[in-house]
């Protein structure tokens, strides 16, 4: 038991939770935005990989870190546009298109990376984001260390949760976005073009996914390797269901998953004699349990995965 208290009592554990959670928050918000307008985006795994690569490459070529994040966002948006064009005006199967984009974007990322960095046994590194203490607040004992001594992108992710929630529930645009995912015919009848709105939202959501990927190379690991996203994208897709398509709950879900992850990392070293793979499984197992508990009452967007064509019902 004392091992548990040691782990849970350490600032590092909670600080790590937010750090591990950041790409998940960004990715989950991205999927959430896409699904809110009615489009499943299984391209996330590949889009995150591409964001990780292109963000890293930008910084490695001499640009500053925020430019790297921006380029990763734009790169994500570009793949989002591809996904949107295939699924919205053409109305192709969103599963197949999304998986195709994941496979394509992952391979393409590695290809570009190898073109830029032809040979190296040791992947080159960049100087990553450093924790930025927020004056005064970071001096609060414990909580200050956990919340206010993070890197810039983590703050950005937390702010984006609030921004997305505000946009969705407090602005005319958000109502139109939600309507696009519930009943695009109704939106069209009110004189707003669901096609354009959906394309725009998918691009914005994919930009968030790209930035989530870039966090991995620009704040967590400092270098790029092709398998680094490691299913985080899929977790985000599940977290959106867990969150019932609500931004605040998405934050909660991402942090919960990150908590399990940070926890098992520490358990691995604290508990001996148990194969570490068992601990690795823990967050995923607990995610499934949480999903069962939370998602049963979820209110799915009614037009999710239904292509919109004018005059057809």
């Amino acid at each position: 038991m004392s091992v548990l208290f040691d782990i849970l009592g350490a600032v590092g554990m909670w600080e790590a939770m937010l750090r591990i959670g950041t790409p998940l928050i960004l990715g989950t918000l991205g999927v959430l935005l896409c699904e809110r307008v009615g489009v499943l985006n299984l391209g996330i795994e590949g889009i995150m990989t591409f964001g990780a690569m292109v963000g890293w490459l930008t910084v490695f070529s001499g640009a500053d870190l925020w430019t790297g994040m921006l380029v990763a966002g734009l790169g994500g948006a570009a793949f989002g546009l591809l996904h949107a064009l295939l699924t919205v005006p053409l109305g192709l199967s969103q599963h197949v298109t999304g998986l195709g984009i994941t496979l394509f974007a992952s391979s393409f990322s590695y290809y570009v990376f190898r073109l830029a960095i032809p040979t190296s046994s040791q992947p080159p590194t960049v100087e990553p984001f450093r924790p930025a203490d927020i004056p005064v607040l970071s001096d609060i004992p414990f909580l200050g260390q956990v919340l206010f001594s993070q890197t810039g992108p983590t703050y950005l992710a937390l702010v984006l949760v609030v921004v997305l929630a505000w946009v969705l529930y407090r602005t005319p645009l958000g109502l139109a976005l939600r309507m696009a995912g519930e009943n695009p015919h109704a939106l069209d009848a009110q004189g707003i073009d669901p096609i354009r709105l959906r394309i725009g939202a998918i691009m914005a959501g994919s930009a968030l996914m790209g930035m989530g990927g870039a966090f991995l190379t620009l704040a967590a690991f400092n270098s790029f390797f092709p398998t680094m996203v490691q299913g985080r994208g899929w977790i985000c897709v599940a977290l959106v269901v867990f969150a019932s398509w609500k931004p605040a709950r998405a934050l909660l879900g991402a942090l919960l998953f990150a908590f399990f992850d940070a926890f098992q990392l520490r358990l691995q070293t604290a508990v001996e004699g148990v194969p570490y793979q068992l601990f690795l499984m823990l967050p995923y197992l607990l995610s499934i349990v949480a999903l069962i508990v939370m998602a049963r009452r979820a209110r799915v967007p009614q037009a999710l995965m239904q292509p919109y064509r004018r005059g057809e019902r």
């Binding site: 005319p172 109502l175 139109a176 939600r178 309507m179 519930e182 009943n183 015919h185 109704a186 939106l187 069209d188 009848a189 009110q190 004189g191 707003i192 209110r299 967007p301 009614q302």
Partner: peptide, 17 residues
């Protein structure tokens, strides 16, 4: 042309601002 998951007010106000 209504969205069942949204409230009456939401449905009425969509696209009016």
């Amino acid at each position: 042309a209504l969205a069942p998951n949204l409230t009456v007010l939401d449905n009425v106000m969509t696209g009016t601002e």
